[in-house]
Design a protein around this nucleic acid. Structure first.
Lengths: 114, 114
DNA sequence: TTATTATATAATTATTTACTTATATATTCA
DNA sequence: TGAATATATAAGTAAATAATTATATAATAA
């Protein structure tokens, strides 16, 4: 199995995805913990379709993957992605957004299933 | 003099700028060496206004700065930018585009003034 | 089974983006 | 000085983007 090269085009694609404040924050949060759609809706105070569409872009590009748990669908970083090392490297210089999860938890908005 | 914090918004802004293949390549080339507009026009096979407009976005966001040398305007990375450490960190994982400068030099297209 | 909750998708729309062509400005060279 | 070269800017346009509202699907709870 050959390790394929990470191209400048892939780098630009990842940057384009993270060039949106919402998506950048999403992946930074997912670095911390898996999240479901309704948690993001609460955190970003944005409509559910808007959140789903952001997540779809991230998923279509292989950055995250979904896992259904009962009525919820949890998203997490796809550490197996070819782009994951680049993503991880990039995120390491982005300030933590963990406070958003803490705040959500304080409001009782975190979903802890299974 | 206080060192200001690098925010997730700034990170997203940089990513948005680098989310374009042309601009990503431009800054990667500028990491290698300063370049003038006509060199980029030759490298990217793109119209002069298109190149100038990409450079303007990078400049307006403080990532590069310009310096006139005779009839040419040379662009280089603005290492004094607040965002420079992040940019540098990001670019370190992007494959070198130095071959584009080598190729340009071979065609006699490099501008070596002053 | 029906209602509720969580999510996705489709259609629409306003905004932004990346280009184009045309023109203006600045420098150099004859 | 006038022509050529390098660059910037302005105006226009097609395509992409990020939202909205409406609707469909899937799981759970009553």
């Amino acid at each position: 199995m050959e390790k394929t090269m990470f191209t400048i085009n892939q780098a630009a694609t990842i940057c384009k995805l993270l060039g949106d404040k919402t998506r950048m924050t999403m992946v930074k949060l997912l670095e911390e913990d898996q999240c479901c759609v309704c948690e993001f809706v609460e955190i970003f105070q944005m409509s559910q379709p808007a959140i789903s569409q952001h997540l779809r872009k991230l998923r279509d590009n292989g950055l995250i993957h979904e896992e259904r748990k009962g009525q919820w669908i949890f998203y997490s970083l796809n550490t197996a992605s070819e782009s994951y090392p680049f993503l991880q490297h990039l995120l390491s210089e982005v300030p933590s957004q963990a406070d958003k999860l803490t705040e959500l938890a304080a409001k009782g908005g975190r979903i802890t299933c299974c």
